[in-house]
Structure formats: structure tokens, C-alpha cells
Design a protein around this nucleic acid. Structure first.
Length: 547
RNA sequence: GCGGCCGUAGCUCAGUUGGAUAGAGCGAGCGCCUCCUAAGCGCUAGGUCACCGGUUCAACUCCGGUCGGUCGCGCCA
């Protein structure tokens, strides 16, 4: 809630008290910005909402409130009743321009708020297996996860960003065998990559790295004997590539946790014991089961197979327990849509461990469907016929790709036309925002005076619009954090950039006859530039000074 | 068959605890640079918000059903 809206709400609350002797919570009063300018700067529907309680018709209620509202000041220039009972407020222009000084003084900190939620949050995202390149689905998860954590931090949350490296399962053995085959192939040995192995070109490149490091040292070694070597070096290289690609994509993590280390530290046994101690496991047909049905899953799940090996689920539970043990109150997992069947058992598991269901929040990131020549382009990491994150970045650039993925809600399906991606340079919305920023910087560069420190001349409609939008920024960030919807930041960016372009077209800033107005507008431009830059930073997109 | 997600303009998508005439970008048409970046601005065209019913003063929004798309439903990971 921004300053102006809060003030308005209090004014309304006071008016209701005075007119009807009725108390109403501040939270119950809705003040919003009408879609149409004719309906004023802000509007409230309290009269309609009170209609039922007070047993009076909305318009009559509004009339009485209006009488009280007009006797107050609080920057309200005019209030009027419209439609079925809305009260519209027209603000004194000067009250809006207050935000400029606030933005200028807070600068990089504008948008930050204090959070009443003091819990420790852990957000896990991407967590792609170290068996090949990141694909567009991972890119979407990375964009959203990284942006979400930036937004949550700005909204005052205590957040740790985490990546879980699945370096212990079957898929790693397959990767090792595939790498081994590529290595041997490079010495002309007739051996094929296993059917269920990984056929991507990344392993051919890693095989070349192996050759350059150890030469033919493993050429004649027994296949079984050399496998651990390829496993180890394959993991090292694949993990390094993941980190590098994510770094290039401007995506960072605070903690990288290895699945192998979960085993090595005995956490799996600890988790199994805790589940059993809580009475939530049983043995049937030689396997150990978790009673997930007790916690809402549709069937119980196997933890330890009949052959004594663990299923994927158990170490994963151990990993989540470990996160709790490390002191995190709430765990957020951003999972790909192909794992949504996994949510129920994970939520069940956290309860079986003895924690409330709300300690784990799983958000699904829907797949991005790739289109090429108007047809779906199926991807598979295993066969190597995949578009990688690196390919995407080369085609469209980091900023465009990130913006594209973050601009859509994570739970909706989306299409990405690969042909469009290459020619997206002029069509992508990210350039619209970046161009606005570059324009502002250009004005600031060309200015030969200092920005003003008071802004009473900022009363033009286009200027007031910019002020209103800036006022919204901190609340918008908070809202995006709470609802875990980074795309709201993109919507905001579009709105701010659009308002600026409109202002730019109508209002000259530099070299005006009225030097005071020029300096005040310069301050406005500086404030908008700060706000836009801060917003772009929230989603990891650059704010160029020139284009 | 069961379950998750989705269905809004030609395309890709927004739509703030249910509110006034449902929006943006791209694409289409028409205008705007003697002036701070025209990667921009203004205007126009384009909609039975998949369909049916219910709740409400008020439904794109909430509930039920139907149709369509998509993903998942292993002692795989």
C-alpha cells in the first residue's frame, strides 16, 4: 500500500466512523486506481460493500460519506459519486509529486520494504541433473526462480537460493558410460553410446577435455575399472558447465547441495529413522513403504525397494529434512510441470517427518513448448536433439530470453517460436523498456543543470501519471513476492515505460524557457530512471544507458 | 479412466481479496521528427472472455457440469 492510498483509506475510515458510527478495518477498504482517467486518480467501492451491513442503498451511503470526505483535506482536490456507488477521488497534483524526492533520496533502495514475516525461506529451483545442457524449460525455471528470490529479498524476506545436484542416481552412471564411449570413440574404438545413455554433443566435448588432460591413459583400461574415473570427471565438467551457463544467464545460487553428500552424511538413514519413529512406514512384499495416503496422497509410496536399494523419493525426503535441519522455516520448490505428480508425496513426506504441510510450498513451472516452422519441436536431452539455454542466449540474448520467460505467469503454458526468437530483436517487449531507460539516461547526460529538489510545478497529467506509478512500486514488489508471481514486475515495467514514452512525447524536459520547470522535470526523469532500473534489476535484466 | 495446469483480439499473453466502457505487445490501416534517441507517440480496426447452468446488487474472476489442449499417474530418476 503506498502512502497516498493509505492516507485515503484512513480518511475514508474516519468518514465512515463519523457518518455511520461504524468501525471498519483498514484492510476492508479497497482503494484502487480506476481504469479510466475520467474516474479520477483513485476510487473506492466501500459504499457498495457497506450497503448490506447498513441496509441502505449504495448511493445514499456514498452521499453521506462524501459530505465527510469533503471536509477533510489530505491532498484530495475533489471527490464525487459515480456509477452504482463508487466514490472517485481527484488528487491535488502536488501531492503526487512528493514521490519524486522520496525516490531520489532512496535511490537503489527505492522499492525495498520491511517484511513482517521473519521466517527463514529456502527457495530451490532449476536443480537440473548434471547430465547435459540446460534446456528452455530449465531456462524458464531459472528466470522465474532467480527473479522471485530477488523480489522476495527486496520485499524484506530472508531468502536463501539453493540448487540440488542429482549426482547419485542411475542417470549419472548412464552419463559416465556415455562419456566413456565418447572417449574411446575418439581413439577409433568401435563402441556405441548406450541406448539409455546421453547422446548430446556436450559429452563429445568433455571427452576431448579428458583426452587433453590424461591422453590415452584410460584407453586400454578395463571398462568396469575406468568407469568411476569417467563418472567423476563427467560430473565435474557437467556441473561446471551448469554453473557457467547459469552465471552467463545472470542466475545465482547461495548453496549447491549434492545428492551424494546427502548419502555420505548418513542423512538418508536419519530420514528413514525419523519417518519410522513417527510410525509412518511399514514393510510389505519386502519393500519399505511410506504411508503418504495418511497425508492426502492417493497411494502409499515405496522408500526402500525389495532389492534393498532406495527409491529416488527417500534421498529427496532426506534432502528436505536437511533443509529443515539447517534452520529454514519454509521451503519453496519450483518444479517443472512434468514433476507435478510428485507434489502430493512430497507434501505428504514433510508431514510424515512431523512438520506442517505449509512448511513446504511447491510451485509448478509449466513447460515452454518450442515451435519451429509453426510446428512443435520436441526436445530430449537424452537423444541430444535439444535446444539448449546457450542456443537461446545466442539467438536472442540474455535480457530478451529472461524477460520473455519472466513476463508470463509460471503456471501457464506458453509457446516460444524459435524462428521468432532470432528476429525478436525489434519485436521483443524488453527493448521497449530498455529503450525508455536509455532515453532517460540520454536526457540526464544532456542536462547542464542540476535536478530540482522540490516539485510543485509537476502537475501535467503525464507527469502525475508517472508519479502515481512510482508510488505503486514498493507495494507491487511486495505483492509479487507474496503471491510468488514475478511476472507482475514485467507488467509494471511495461506500464512505467509506456507512461514515460507518452510523457517524453508530450513534455520537453531540457532547455525550457521556464528553467525551474526544466529542473523539476529533470528530477522527475531521474526518479523514473531510478525506478525503472530498480524494476529491471528485480528480474535480472540490464538497464542500458545507451542503445 | 483418475489427477494437475490451461482455454481472453489474427498471434503471444495481462486482467490487482468479484466492480464502472475487458487491456498490452506483435501483426493490419492512418497520422506525427526545424525539438532531449522515431527501438517512440497518437488514432482506427479487431472480442458470444471455449460452452451451459448456479451464487451475487454486480462474474473473465467464485461453484457445478460439458468440450478442447497439455502434462503426469513405476519397487525409474
Amino acid at each position: 500500500m503506498n502512502l497516498i492510498e493509505t492516507t485515503l483509506k484512513k480518511t475514508i475510515q474516519y468518514a465512515i466512523k463519523k457518518a455511520f458510527d461504524t468501525d471498519i478495518e483498514l484492510d476492508e477498504i479497497v482503494v484502487e486506481e480506476p481504469k479510466s482517467k475520467e474516474h479520477g486518480d483513485y476510487a473506492t467501492n466501500v459504499a457498495m460493500r457497506l450497503s448490506k451491513v447498513l441496509r441502505q442503498n449504495p448511493k445514499a451511503i456514498a452521499e453521506k460519506l462524501l459530505h465527510e470526505l469533503e471536509s477533510k483535506e489530505d491532498g484530495i482536490r475533489k471527490a464525487e459519486i459515480a456509477g452504482p456507488g463508487f466514490i472517485n477521488f481527484f488528487m491535488e497534483a502536488g501531492s503526487l509529486s512528493e514521490v519524486i524526492a522520496k525516490v531520489l533520496s532512496e535511490d537503489k533502495d527505492f522499492g525495498k520494504t520491511v517484511c513482517e514475516d521473519k521466517r527463514r525461506w529456502n527457495v530451490e529451483y532449476v536443480s537440473a541433473n548434471p547430465t547435459g545442457d540446460l534446456h528452455p524449460g530449465h531456462a524458464r525455471g531459472a528466470s522465474i526462480g532467480d527473479s522471485l528470490t530477488r523480489i522476495m529479498k527486496t520485499a524484506g524476506y530472508d531468502v536463501t537460493r539453493e540448487y540440488y545436484i542429482n549426482d547419485a542416481g542411475n542417470q549419472i552412471n548412464n552419463m559416465a558410460k556415455s562419456l566413456q564411449a565418447r572417449y574411446l570413440q575418439s581413439y577409433g574404438i568401435d563402441i556405441t553410446v548406450p541406448e539409455d545413455g546421453y547422446h548430446g554433443k556436450d559429452l563429445i566435448e568433455i571427452a576431448e577435455t579428458v583426452v587433453s588432460e590424461v591422453g590415452d591413459a584410460y584407453k586400454d583400461v578395463d571398462i568396469e575399472e575406468s568407469l568411476p574415473f569417467f563418472r567423476q570427471i563427467g560430473l565435474r565438467e557437467e556441473t561446471k558447465k551448469l554453473r557457467d551457463d547459469l552465471w552467463t544467464f545472470n542466475v545465482e545460487f547461495d548453496v549447491w547441495t549434492s545428492e551424494q553428500s546427502v548419502y555420505d552424511r548418513g542423512l538418508v538413514e536419519r530420514a528413514l529413522k525419523q519417518l519410522t519413529d513417527n510410525g509412518n512406514t511399514y514393510v510389505s512384499e519386502e519393500a519399505t513403504w511410506l504411508r503418504t495416503t495418511e497425508f492426502g496422497d492417493d497411494k502409499d509410496r515405496v522408500l526402500v525397494r525389495g532389492n534393498g536399494l532406495y527409491t529416488y523419493l527417500l534421498p529427496d525426503i532426506a534432502y528436505h529434512l536437511n533443509k529443515k535441519d539447517r534452520g529454514f522455516d519454509v521451503l519453496i520448490d519450483l518444479l517443472g510441470a512434468d514433476h507435478h505428480g510428485y507434489i502430493a508425496r512430497l507434501k505428504a513426506a514433510i508431514q510424515a517427518l512431523g512438520y506442517p504441510s505449509s512448511d513446504l510450498e511447491v510451485d509448478i513451472i509449466q513447460m515452454a513448448r518450442m515451435l519451429k516452422d509453426g510446428e512443435e519441436f520436441k526436445m530430449s536431452k537424452r537423444t541430444g536433439k535439444a535446444v539448449s539455454l546457450k542456443d537461446l542466449i545466442e539467438e536472442a540474448g540474455v535480457d530478451a530470453v529472461r524477460y520473455y520467460f519472466v513476463s508470463r505467469a509460471g503456471d501457464t503454458h506458453m509457446d516460444l517460436d524459435l524462428d521468432m526468437a532470432s528476429k525478436q530483436s525489434n519485436e521483443n517487449p524488453v527493448y521497449y523498456a530498455q529503450y525508455a531507460h536509455a532515453r532517460m539516461c540520454s536526457i540526464l547526460r544532456n542536462a547542464d543543470v542540476q535536478p530540482a529538489t522540490s516539485f510543485e510545478l509537476i502537475i501535467h497529467p503525464k507527469e502525475s501519471e508517472l508519479c502515481k506509478i512510482m508510488f505503486e512500486f514498493p507495494q507491487m514488489v511486495k505483492d509479487a513476492a507474496q503471491t510468488r508471481q514475478p511476472h507482475k514486475v514485467c507488467n509494471y515495467i511495461q506500464k512505467l515505460a509506456s507512461a514515460f514514452h507518452a510523457f517524453y512525447n508530450e513534455c520537453q524536459v531540457l532547455n525550457l524557457e521556464d528553467a525551474r520547470l526544466s529542473a523539476q522535470r529533470l528530477g522527475l526523469v531521474k526518479a523514473v530512471q531510478i525506478t525503472l532500473r530498480n524494476a529491471l534489476t528485480l528480474i535480472g535484466v540490464g538497464a542500458p544507458e545507451k542503445m
